[in-house]
Amino acid sequence: MVRFLAGKGVQYALVLLFAVTLNFMLPRMMPGSPLVFLAGEDVGFLSEAQRTELLRSLGLDQPLWRQYVQYLGNLATGNLGYSFQKGRPISEIIVERLPWTLLLVGLALLAATLIGVVWGTLVAWRRGSAFDLGSLGISMFFESTPSFWLGMIFIAVFAARLRWFPIFGAQTPGVSLAGWAMVANTAWHLALPLATLTLITIPGNFLIMRYSMLTVLGEQYIATAKAKGLAERTVIYRHAMRNALLPMATVVMLNLGFIASGATVIETVFSYPGVGRLLYEAVLNRDYPVIQATFFILTVSVIAANVLADLLYPLIDPRVRHAR
């Protein structure tokens, strides 16, 4: 158990080190002055003295290893740099944006896992039926469809045509709501992006759950349970599904990077004010420090979710809990 967590810890530390080092190296490796990337394209208009002063204030006149140490120190104290485009410290912007992404991704993850698990279980029980084949076809379609396109179609049909849902944003602008009215307004704005992200996340979960369930259903103890005359429902949910769930935990974790990627494009389509949308705005404005900070925050979020899942995993798998 301790060794399992230690091994995982090393892996996440490596991921973090890779992300941070890449962020540090990219602006300094590119041809031309790193100032263009770190202080905005306006530096072309500065005088020589101003440029030297700016280089000094950003610490870019120091040797590379000292810059790296300083960079790590800044990150450790929550200093993500400064957005010259928006004229604000990046950590401030991220604090505003991150909750929206966590709301969207968290709910989508929850919904997609629940639906994928139940759907995969039921389909595996009726393997080879029309329901099974139809489900496989539908999941293959959503697995192969670009998420942003699905979002655009949803807006076109449910927002622009039918006017059931708003076209953009997370809340109606210019209206201050409180209590349940605010919750309802937020949920109304969240519905379409959430549906899109959930729909493209389900197939991965569904296919793995179905496969895992098929493997479990071939085991002897399922035959025993059936032979004992237990109700079908009991065999499916208490004997088969609980064991088939174990590989799902790993898959859900591996999917986190995929969901974070999906959220980036979906937030863009729906103008949803999360970190993914921030990344898109930064790309449009060539606001490199913000691009880097968003990448860093998304990586940290994925790692944090992985750590959480690793800590919870022993609760569902007694073999890990008791292993030494």
């Binding site: 992300a19 999906g262 790309v283 998304l298 990586t299 992985n306």
Partner: peptide, 22 residues
């Protein structure tokens, strides 16, 4: 294989956006 794990964990689209932007 550690390198493989690192690549699999990292959110790939933001990483590609970062590199493509540069």
């Amino acid at each position: 294989m550690r390198a493989v794990d690192v690549v699999l964990v990292i959110p790939f689209l933001p990483l590609m956006i970062l590199i493509a932007a540069y």
